[in-house]
Design a binder for these strands. Sequence first.
RNA 1: CGGGGCGUAGCGCAGCCUGGUUAGCGCGCCUGCCUUGGGAGCAGGAGGUCGGAGGUUCGAAUCCUCUCGCCCCGACCA
Length: 578
Amino acid sequence: MRYSQLLLPTLKENPAEAEVVSHRLLLRAGFIRKLASGIYSYLPLGLAAIRKVEHIVREEMNRAGAQELLLPVVQPADLWLESGRWLKYGPELLRFKDRHNRESCLGPTHEEVITDLVRMNVHSYRALPLNLYQIQTKFRDEIRPRFGLMRGREFIMKDAYSFDVDEDGANVAYRKMSDAYHRIFKRCGLSFRAVEADTGTIGGDFSHEFMVLADTGEDTLAICKAKGGGCGYSANLEKAVGAAPKAPEPEVELLPLEKIETPGKRKVVAVTAFLDVSPKQLVKTMVYMADGKPVAVLVRGDHEVQEVKLKNMLGAVDVELADDQQIYDATGVPSGYLGPVGIKIPLVADREIEVMRNFAIGGGEKNYHLLNANLGRDFEVGQIGDLREVTSDDLCPLCNGELEFTKGIEVGHIFKLGTNYSEVLNATYSDQDGQEKHFVMGCYGIGVSRIVAAAIEQNHDDDGIIFPVPLAPFQVVVLNLSPSDPEITDAAEIVYRGLQDHGLDILLDDRDERPGIKFKDADLVGIPYRVTVGKGFAKDGTVEIRTRRDGQTVSLPLAEVVAHLTARINDEMADLAK
RNA sequence: CGGGGCGUAGCGCAGCCUGGUUAGCGCGCCUGCCUUGGGAGCAGGAGGUCGGAGGUUCGAAUCCUCUCGCCCCGACCA
C-alpha cells in the first residue's frame, strides 16, 4: 500500500476523550474513530489489524476441527423466550420491534440461534461431534462502555459452539478449544493466562477465561505463587477460593451471649475498637437486595462479600447492596446494628462463620452489639458456603501456597455448557440405540477487536504502538525520504515490490513530507520493521533497517534487504506458532 | 442509575466568573517560496448555527431554564 493513497489520519495530539493507552493510540494512529459511545468505525489500519487476528483465529479453529458459518445479528424474541433468557439477560440485550410489531433483539451471543439451527438439522449421533463457529459483530448494550475497543457496545467476536453425544465427548471438545486458544493467543504474541471463571449469564458447568496480563485490565486474577512457580491454580477474583478454613479447636468453650451497649458504633472499625476485639472476631450482617427481595449475608468483619458468588448461591439475576432505608424497611433495625439473632429476612453465611466461636455481632437494635455469639446455638442460617472475596491472607486451595493478585483483560472465555441449552430448547439426536438424547454442549468466545486493544496495552512506548509481527497491519514500512530524487525513489520501489512479492504486507511512505514526519508516523502506527531509503543509499548504496521494538538498526546493501527481512519475519512468526 | 467533568474550526485549547464592534491561539488543511535523516521556516488563504431549544436583556459564547451528547468514578462493606 502506498501511504499517499491510504486513509491514515494520524493525530499529533492526544484526543481529549481517551484515557487509557490503547484507546489513545488507536485514535492517534488512525485505527478507529468513534461514532457514538462504545461504537467505533474501523479505519483501514484498524481493520487490517483485526483481519490479522481473525486469520490466526480461523487457522487454529479450523485446525481444531471447527467449521465456520455465519449466523444472523437480528434475532426473534421467540427463541430467547424459549430459552428463558429474554427475561434473564437484562438491559444489555438490545430489544426492538420490527414493522410487524414482532419483538426482536440484536445478538449479544448466539447459543439460542445455533442450538435452534442444530436441532433442526442434526438428528443422528453419526453427525457428532460438531463444532461450529463464526466471526461476527456482536452488540451488547453495556452499562458503561469505556476504554475504546476494550469495552465497546458493538464489537467483533469469534464464537464457537460444540455439540457432543455425552459428557466425555464434550470434555474432549472443551480441551481441544482450550488448546486452540492457547495457540491463538501465543501466536498473537500476547502474554496471557488461563484462569477459572464464573459462567455469568451464559451459564453452564464450568468455564475458563483467557486473560491478557495488563495493569489496565478490568478483572483481577488470583494466581498461586507457591515455590517453584506456583502449582498452576489461577482464577478470576469472582471465582477464586482460598484454602478451606481451619476447623476450630474442639475444646473451645462456648461462652454465654452478652449484650453490650455500643452507642454510635456502626462501622466494623469503630465497633471492634470499642469492644476491643479483632475484626476477625466479628461477623458483619450485610443486607442485599436479590432480585428486589432482601437477604442478609454474614461474613467475617475483615472479609468482603463477593457479589457474583452470592448471586450464584441465591440463583438471583441481580444482587445489589441495600441502602439504609431498605435495610430498615426490611428488618426494623438501623444499619450498623443489624445481627443474625432474630432477624426477619432470609439469612445466608460465608463458610468461615462455621469455624468461628464466640464472635461479636450486631445486637439487632439501635446502639447494641452482642458478644460470644455462636452459629447453631444463637441463630441458624438458610445456606452456608463460600461467599467472600479471597485476600492476600488466603492460601491456594490446591497446594496451600501463597496467592498473588494481578490485573487482566479478558480476551477469551470457554464454557462447558452441558445440556442447559439443549434441554430448554429441546435439541436432541438419536443415539445408536435409537434413543432421543440431548446434545452436550460447550461454547467458546474470543474478543477479536478487544485483542487488538489488549495487544497495544501490552506493547507500546512513548512514541506509539509496537505491534507484535503477527498482528501488525503491515510488517514493514519502507520510507522513501526523497520522493523527488529518482534514484532513491527507484530503490524504495525495488524494496517495496520485492517484499510484496514474498507475500508480506508492506507500506511504502511515498508522501512528499519531511523525514521527521515519516519517522514519527512509522513509530506511532507501530510497524515492526522500518526500511529507510535516503542519504545512506545516495552515499554508498545501503539502506537502513530498524526494529521498532528495540530501535536496533542495521545497514545493508539494497540487494540484501528483501532476503534479510523475509527471513527475520518468517522466523519470528514460526517461533510464535511453535 | 447515582456522583463528577466537558461540549467554542478537523485536533488540542483560551475567552464565560465581571454580557458590549468583524470570536481568538497553536497544530492541521489550501497556495507560493524555501527546506529534506526525527512532527522546519517565511508569506498569503480557507474554514465557526460557540452542542440544541427556550428565556432574561437595547445587546448573550458569556446570565437563567430545559434538553441532547461525550468522558471519568461508582455500582463498594454496616
